[in-house]
């Protein structure tokens, strides 16, 4: 099974072939989305969820910290974006900054409490904290609008100092989100191949050894948690803008579980690109299978179970296996010594 960390010496490259492929697909999508029976808004959703899933995988796949309450930070980001527009002023950059900072702050609070915990206890605490955020968003009606959600969030125009681009229609918003996605991918790609990122991966592989070669393990875990929450917050802000509203639903355990499923099905445990594949598969399954049958989640769930049982390395792992020709060293050796 390939792993996230068996990286070749060339890994320092700024731009890699998969990035170009993804860039080409995303940029050309508006031309063919309609032709294959899909629609522009789906493109926005997919791009936003890619940011979310890639950021989540910094924590889940790379650091090996299995958070099951990550929807909280997506939700916090969405509310922060909306509240900024309502109470501070209509500003795209201000709203996104607020989303990232609010989610980062939530990440610091939770991360400080969970970064000394391991394994299932870590997962359970993230669930408990996730539920607290979800529950609060429902109950703090005066702030969040409760179950009705925070409505009438505007889509502020893109302000580039000398140029102002309205983002009211889905096509321009799509291109904006894709641009943010590109920046997020570049940042995350640099991060996982940086000294910091390699230390995170070392901690995943062997926490005790990492401590004995001198690293403050919990600080790195906390940092990974906060960074990952910030990416979720960014995605949440964009999502609030796309939906023009923010709801508690994204913070539920159900939704937090879905992002785990997407990342795993795509192969986030073995590849940087796993989350991207997983997000595409989920949304296409939702829309294509969902158009055919109301029970598409049943089929998606069954596929997920089969994946966990037989191919835990996910879609990326399967592609890796198909692409790689058998190596000479991998062929079974003749059983010459067995008689001895």
């Amino acid at each position: 099974m390939p792993t996230l960390s068996d990286i070749s010496p060339r890994s320092a490259a700024w731009v890699t072939p998969p990035m170009l492929v993804l860039g080409f697909v995303m940029l050309s999508a508006p031309l063919w989305l309609g032709a294959v029976g899909l629609y522009q808004y789906l493109g926005i959703e997919i791009a936003i969820w890619m940011i979310y899933a890639l950021g989540f995988n910094l924590l889940f796949g790379y650091t090996g910290l299995h958070s099951f309450g990550h929807g909280a930070y997506l939700g916090v980001g969405g509310y922060a974006f909306g509240l900024f527009q309502h109470h501070v002023g209509s500003s795209l950059w201000g709203g996104l900054a607020a989303a990232i900072l609010a989610a980062g702050l939530a990440g610091v609070l939770v991360g400080a409490a969970v970064s000394h915990r391991r394994g299932i206890y870590f997962a359970l605490l993230t669930i408990a904290f996730g539920q607290v955020f979800w529950f609060s968003s429902i109950k703090l009606h005066w702030l969040t609008g409760g179950e009705d959600g925070l409505l009438n969030i505007p889509r502020p125009p893109l302000d580039l100092v000398f140029l102002e681009v309205p983002l009211g229609d889905n096509l321009s918003l799509y291109y904006f989100v894709v641009a943010v996605l590109a920046l997020a991918i570049l940042a995350l790609w640099r991060m996982v191949n940086s000294p910091f990122g390699r230390i995170l991966q070392a901690i995943r592989q062997n926490e005790m050894r990492a401590a004995f070669v001198g690293y403050e393990v919990w600080r790195f875990k906390l940092m990974a948690f906060v960074l990952s929450a910030m990416f979720a917050g960014l995605a949440g802000g964009l999502f609030a803008m796309a939906q023009e509203s923010a709801y508690p639903d994204v913070m539920s355990l159900h939704q937090s579980g879905l992002i785990v499923m997407m990342v795993l099905v795509g192969g986030g445990l073995v590849s940087f690109w796993g989350p991207v594949l997983g997000v595409v598969l989920y949304f296409v399954a939702r829309d294509v299978l969902g158009a055919l049958t109301e029970t598409w989640l049943l089929w998606y769930g069954l596929m997920f179970m089969a994946m966990v049982m037989f191919r835990p390395e996910g879609l990326a792992g399967v592609l890796h296996r198909l692409r790689r020709r058998p190596e000479p060293g991998a062929t079974p050796r003749p059983a010459a010594s067995e008689g001895a």
């Binding site: 960390s5 320092a12 910091f196 990122g197 390699r198 991966q201 070392a202 592989q205 070669v213």
Partner: peptide
């Protein structure tokens, strides 16, 4: 560090590498 290469196991333990632990965007 079982997933990592022999070289990386050593590099991770070098004090000169540890000094760069806060670098998020430079190549490892």
């Amino acid at each position: 560090f079982d997933d990592s290469t022999v070289l990386e196991n050593i590099v991770l333990a070098l004090p000169a590498f540890r000094a760069r632990r806060r670098k998020l965007f430079s190549a490892a």
